[in-house]
């Protein structure tokens, strides 16, 4: 809104002052979006929290007070605030704080990698379908329809059921589930961009298909992709933790939030913190990602503001 008013002097008879004004303050769309995002307090706080979590996860080997897998049965089920164990110990006497830190490493990594894999595959598939159209599009879209005929988590479970339980397979499973969404987003933008003048112009001057796809179409489809990906990381983290909780993802004794929660379930009478803390971490990270995702969406396209 503000920006429109600033631009309005363009209506004056002499265009020159306007040009110089714009030239004096060059601003890209990205810059504008970042400025809007910066004003969204919830998004900024969330981004700061996520950055903090990422730093903690990356430096887990340095800052975790103990080895997350070393058991100490005499000191099992210690409550929060016990000397030497700030957040207590779990059912095998392992230090909860260390396990939470290492667990974050796994969960965050799974979330980001899964989104990257899903997005890369989805982008390729969506570009192929949208750009070439015809039978390529028909075949790809029918396959996508079939994948989307499954509820997301069920499809992930089906993939794990086939490949067998394990962290890598769980990560692959949630990635596969994500592919159709990205493919549809990209296909949609390709279809709306394909016949625009700048794409036709590029074709007329002899640009190759690859060049048009990468420099003209993909570059212009990035905004919805970034928004979708930000919101998706949270879903992927939650889904991967869910699979681990079911016993289909990461396996004990790996320190992973879903695994920890599942193991703590046996102890909710004596030591509820064992299952509450890892769940709280998942919740906080996913909540932050959702606030950030909403913020990014509003910043990139203010018309979509809820």
């Amino acid at each position: 809104m503000e920006r429109e008013i600033e631009l309005r002097p363009g209506k004056t008879s002499d265009a020159r002052p306007v040009e110089s004004k714009l030239a004096g303050r060059p601003r890209s769309l990205t810059h504008d979006a970042l400025r809007r995002l910066w004003r969204d307090r919830a998004a900024v706080v969330s981004a700061a929290f996520l950055l903090f979590m990422i730093i903690i996860s990356l430096s887990a080997p340095l800052i975790a007070p103990m080895d997350p897998t070393v058991t100490d049965l005499p000191n099992r089920l210690l409550p929060i605030g016990s000397p030497g164990h700030l957040l207590g110990t779990d059912e095998l006497g392992r230090d909860m704080l260390s396990r939470l830190i290492w667990g974050g490493r796994v969960s965050l990594l799974v979330g980001f990698i899964a989104v990257l894999v899903a997005m890369s595959a989805g982008v390729v598939v969506g570009l192929l379908a949208g750009y070439f159209g015809g039978w390529v599009d028909s075949v790809i879209m029918r396959l996508i329809d079939i994948l989307m005929a499954f509820p997301s988590l069920l499809l992930a479970i089906a993939v794990v059921a086939s490949l067998g339980p394990g962290l890598t397979n769980a990560m692959l499973a949630v990635s596969i589930v994500g592919i159709p969404y990205y493919a549809r987003i990209v296909r949609g933008s390709v279809l709306s961009l394909r016949n625009q003048e700048f794409v036709q112009a590029a074709r007329v001057i002899g640009a190759s298909d690859l060049r048009i796809i990468v420099y003209h179409i993909l570059a212009n489809s990035l905004a919805p992709l970034i928004v979708a990906a930000t919101l998706d990381v949270g879903w992927m983290i939650m889904a991967a933790a869910g699979l681990s909780f079911l016993g289909l993802g990461a396996q004990p004794p790996t320190a992973e939030w879903g695994v920890m929660l599942s193991a703590g379930r046996q102890q909710i009478r004596n030591a509820p913190h064992i299952s509450i803390l890892p769940g709280l971490m998942i919740f906080l990270v996913v909540l932050a990602l959702n606030f950030l995702g909403d913020g990014v969406r509003d910043a990139m396209d203010p018309r979509l503001r809820q």
Binding site: G234, M238, A241, G242, F245, G258, L261, S262, G264, R265, I268, S275, I276, G279, L280, I282, F283, V286, L287, L289, N290
Partner: peptide, 9 residues
């Protein structure tokens, strides 16, 4: 943002 398996517990 709440994982159902955590809320349940």
């Amino acid at each position: 943002s709440t994982p159902v398996f955590w809320l349940g517990i």
